[in-house]
């Protein structure tokens, strides 16, 4: 009897423990976000006015379009560069892997601020890149590579590439080399092996990196502020302005909700396009 009751208590205790995390997550994420949603339709007055303002084609629509454009372009470039880097890393000799590891890890030690300033020094009109090109007479006028959207994308890609490498490299590392050998031995040339075997098998990693980098990229704040010359206002900064400067909390909340929905939609779309379902079942 005593044993049974102890078991019963233990079971209850375990169940309580198992429920702690979901309840915690619910409290920490869902409840506040429900608050955000309610703000978005109640402040300053009840209705969908704030959403209308975001979607109606005015300045807020532009902020979203700009954010999406920058996010998609920088994510695409990041994934491309990160993919090549991961491939080079995973497939390389021991020496090459070590060198690449250093190159991938060092940026983590440098703050986003310093990295943005570094790019500014390189890209601005009187910076290193334009200076070199003008000194070698390849160009006569600065290319206007600093303090604009281009510079922001460069800075963002540079920031995100090391992050994108890990999910992709992890998946690539798990691909059985014999599968690649098998494809080769069965008559596929290296390009076909890559296209038909390696690439599809890397897709789960590409997708994970894509989601991570996309979520990163819509939330950038410091890099656009420094490299954008003040012009490249993205959603994160616009939400900040609404929350802290103009105290139009309803608009800030509505923007957060729209951003979340947009990211969800893009991720869902990518999931379908990349054919990820073939891996799940």
């Amino acid at each position: 009897m005593a044993g049974a009751s102890r078991n019963g208590n233990g079971g209850l205790g375990t169940r309580a423990l198992l429920w702690t995390l979901p309840v915690l997550l619910l409290t920490l994420y869902v409840v506040p976000f429900a608050g955000v949603i309610s703000w978005s339709v109640t402040q300053p007055e009840v209705g969908f006015g704030q959403y209308w303002r975001i979607l109606s084609g005015g300045d807020m629509t532009n902020v979203f379009l700009r954010t999406l454009r920058i996010a998609v372009v920088s994510t695409a470039i990041t994934i491309l560069v990160g993919f090549c880097l991961s491939y080079y890393w995973v497939m390389g000799s021991r020496l090459r892997q070590t060198i690449l590891e250093v190159c991938i890890f060092i940026p983590f030690w440098i703050s986003v601020l310093v990295r943005a300033f570094g790019w500014l020094i390189i890209l601005r009109d009187n910076g290193l890149a334009n200076g070199f090109l003008m000194a070698t007479r390849l160009i006569s006028e600065p290319l206007g590579t600093g303090r604009n959207e281009f510079a922001v994308i460069v800075g963002m890609v540079h920031f995100m590439v090391p992050f994108s490498v890990f999910p992709m490299a992890t998946v690539m590392r798990k691909i059985d080399r014999r599968i690649l050998l098998a494809a080769h031995g069965l008559g596929a040339d290296p390009a076909t092996v890559f296209r038909k075997i390696f690439l599809p098998l890397s897709m789960p990693g590409v997708f994970a990196a894509f989601v991570m980098v996309l979520v990163f990229s819509v939330g950038f704040f410091v890099t656009p502020a420094i490299l954008g010359g003040g012009r490249v206002v993205m959603v994160a900064e616009a939400v900040f302005v609404q929350m802290f400067q103009t105290t139009n909390w309803g608009l800030g909340a509505a923007m957060s909700v729209v951003l979340l929905v947009l990211i969800g939609a893009i991720v869902g779309l990518a999931y379908r396009l990349l054919g990820l379902r073939s891996f799940v079942g």
Binding site: D176, I179, G185, L186, G187, D189, K196
Partner: peptide
């Protein structure tokens, strides 16, 4: 890929993202 030899690997090395038919048809497709 030009020797035209078949090979069966230790652990089979099947293509996990392809069906059985696509696995078997792979050498024909390439």
């Amino acid at each position: 890929d030009r020797r035209n030899f078949g090979m069966v690997f230790q652990g089979y090395a099947l293509f996990p993202h392809m069906s059985v038919a696509d696995n078997i048809g792979f050498p024909l497709r390439v």
